[in-house]
Amino acid sequence: MNSKVVLLAFLLAVIAVAFAQRKEEIFARAVGPCIADKCQSKHTCYFGQCVPEGIAPAMPALDKSAAIGPCINYLCPGNSFCHQGMCYNNI
């Protein structure tokens, strides 16, 4: 039973590392911030950044209770991003 738990923990760690690297690669190709949740042609808004279409998964639904406040002129403080009028901490 313990070996199953260790194997599951290892697999979850590998998946987490792969996801982090993938997200880093996506943001490396960003061309700038989203403005009013919109980007230029052939780009999509992903966690507040405009990235080329097809390289990022669909933006997940964000929990509005996790918002840190409203966007002001589509801007948020620090390392947070604006999505549908609310600021969220960057993950």
Rank of each mutant, 00 (worst) to 15 (best):
P52A: 02
M1I: 07
M86H: 05
I35L: 11
C34Y: 05
L8W: 13
L7E: 08
A18W: 12
H83A: 14
P60W: 01
L12H: 03
D63C: 03
I26T: 06
K64A: 11
G32E: 04
C76S: 01
F19T: 15
V6L: 12
G54L: 10
C87N: 03
K38A: 04
Q49S: 04
A58E: 10
Q49Y: 14
P60Y: 00
P57K: 13
Q84I: 10
N90I: 09
A61S: 12
L12W: 08
V31C: 07
N2S: 07
S41Q: 12
C45V: 02
C39P: 03
I72H: 03
E25V: 10
N73H: 00
S41R: 12
E53L: 08
A16L: 14
L8E: 03
V17H: 13
M86Q: 11
A16N: 13
L8R: 05
D37I: 03
Q49E: 11
H43D: 02
K64Y: 04
F81M: 08
L12F: 09
G54Y: 05
P57Q: 03
A28F: 01
I55D: 01
G54K: 12
A36C: 11
V14Y: 08
S3M: 12
A67E: 01
F81V: 06
A56P: 07
Q40N: 04
V14A: 09
A20S: 14
P57H: 08
K4S: 10
V51F: 01
F19W: 15
S65A: 14
C34H: 03
K23T: 13
Y88E: 11
I35M: 01
D37A: 07
I68W: 06
N79P: 10
V17D: 12
Q84W: 03
A36V: 07
Q84S: 13
G48D: 02
F47M: 12
A20M: 14
L8F: 07
A30G: 05
A16H: 08
P57A: 04
L75T: 08
A13T: 12
Q21R: 11
K42D: 09
P70N: 05
G78M: 06
P57F: 02
M59N: 06
F19E: 14
P57R: 01
P52D: 04
C50I: 01
Q40E: 04
N73F: 06
A30I: 06
C39H: 00
C39F: 00
I55S: 00
